[in-house]
Computed example of a mutant assay.
Amino acid sequence: MPWVLETARQLGLIGASLFTQSCAVDTVYYNIQEMQEKKIPPEKLLVTVSRFPALAALEIADLPSFVQGMESESEYSSLLNQVVGQFSNFKDADWIFVNTFNTLEEEAVNWLASQRSIKPIGPMIPSFYLDRQLEDDKEYGPSLFKPNLDGCNEWLDSKENGSVVYVSFGSLHWREQMAEIAWGLKRSGCCFLWVVRESERKKLPINFAEESSGKGVIVTWSQQLEVLAHRSVGCFMTHCGWNSTLEALSLGVPMVAMPQWTDQPTNAKYIADVWQVGVRVKANEKGIVTKEEVEGCIREVMEGERGNEIRRNSEKWMKLAQTAADEGYGVLRYLTMSSARVFEPAASRFSR
């Protein structure tokens, strides 16, 4: 929201911007903003961004969904303008913070930092699940929704280490796709914990929950960090939103990437091909991820030498995330001291 920074300027305040997506996605949007100002045609812009040296080798399908359709007017046009517009006054902020860490996206971080000073402060995950420097820091913030999770935890406790597939999508599926996911989970033979909102349960195959009760549990909500941190969880099937991606990376959980829209395709590309901590599903010609594909991807993560390799990579990134979190406390101390210097004169000005 660039207008917030503009308002701060009008009030004589210091302005800081926090970018909550990956640095790779930020780099894509920043470059689109710059090239649009230079009136570069969309078709040339797409090719230029996908081959940008600070990013992994991207196909058009790996770019954020708002970007993929920019050659023609689409329902995403206004959304693209909003996300790209974040960077219209990128160089004007006093501070720029990004929810990532240097070792995770070194090339993208270094390139964006070459445009102006930025401070990676990720992974922004409660301390309890990373380095435990703050034992009571278990949630992102207060929540009005406090379900009873005892039954879910007892079920997870009863399973072997790394044997459970955790399935949770931030966005919704249509009925046919829900059925394919359901039967793919069942065909995999793995135990699974699947988060399905109450309003979505009607899309499940008839009697699926009852027929799967020996192997699977379907819940309407879960404390995701607590589930991902549980010893029995060996795979996370996700749409690859940035928060979920950082959580899985930070807790060493391999992923089956099933991106839908916005930044998810780019995150999925990095999950599968750059960090190599998971596999990415492939949709058929109708845009459906079949039950056979779901089963195959789960088995690839959970079984065999490929699964072992993915787990080793996941453990590597977990350790690097923990190191980054330790270093992040130095950044927080810097911010605390800097904030005191910044806000003290501002407070005295408004108190007059």
Rank of each mutant, 00 (worst) to 15 (best):
R187I: 09
E160R: 04
L225F: 05
F87Y: 15
T262A: 10
V277E: 05
A54K: 05
F208R: 11
F236C: 00
D92K: 14
V277A: 07
P147M: 02
V301M: 06
N153F: 07
L79R: 14
N207A: 15
G162C: 03
E107C: 02
F66S: 09
H230V: 01
F128L: 09
A54L: 09
D273T: 00
W242N: 07
E295N: 07
V289A: 05
A56L: 07
N153C: 01
E75K: 12
R311V: 02
M337H: 05
Q33C: 15
D136G: 00
P41W: 15
S22V: 02
W242C: 03
F66V: 15
E247R: 03
R299W: 00
S114Q: 02
V25D: 10
K44N: 14
E176N: 07
A182S: 15
P265H: 08
R349L: 15
D92C: 07
Y329Q: 07
V274R: 10
I121A: 13
I271N: 03
Q223A: 12
G234E: 14
S78Q: 13
V98F: 15
R51S: 13
R197Q: 14
S163F: 04
I32V: 14
K146M: 04
V219S: 00
L320A: 09
M337V: 10
K202F: 01
W261D: 00
T245M: 11
G241Y: 03
L172K: 01
A182Q: 03
D157H: 06
M255D: 10
R311K: 13
A340C: 03
V195Q: 06
F145H: 13
C23M: 04
K319A: 12
A229M: 04
V253Y: 08
K38F: 02
K146P: 01
M1C: 03
F101E: 04
L193E: 10
V217T: 00
Q115W: 13
G278W: 11
P123E: 00
G189Y: 15
V342F: 11
E210C: 03
N153H: 06
V167A: 11
D94V: 12
A108T: 06
S143L: 11
F52H: 15
M124R: 09
T20N: 15
V274L: 03
F192E: 12
S168R: 02
I40K: 13
G304Y: 00
M178I: 08
E300N: 00
G85M: 04
C152F: 01
Y76R: 12
S351C: 12
Y29F: 14
R51C: 07
Y76A: 14
S171K: 04
P41I: 12
R311E: 12
D131H: 05
L156N: 10
E285A: 13
L156T: 10
K291T: 06
L246V: 04
L112F: 07
S314L: 12
S212E: 11
I40A: 08
I60M: 12
P147Q: 06
V164F: 05
G234V: 03
L18W: 02
N99W: 06
A61S: 11
C191G: 00
S88W: 07
P142R: 10
Q322H: 13
T262Q: 01
E309L: 11
V274F: 00
S168N: 00
G184H: 13
L58K: 01
V294P: 13
S163K: 06
L149H: 05
Y334V: 00
P41Y: 09
N161S: 12
S339K: 06
N110P: 02
A324W: 11
N99H: 09
D273P: 00
T266E: 01
G170W: 02
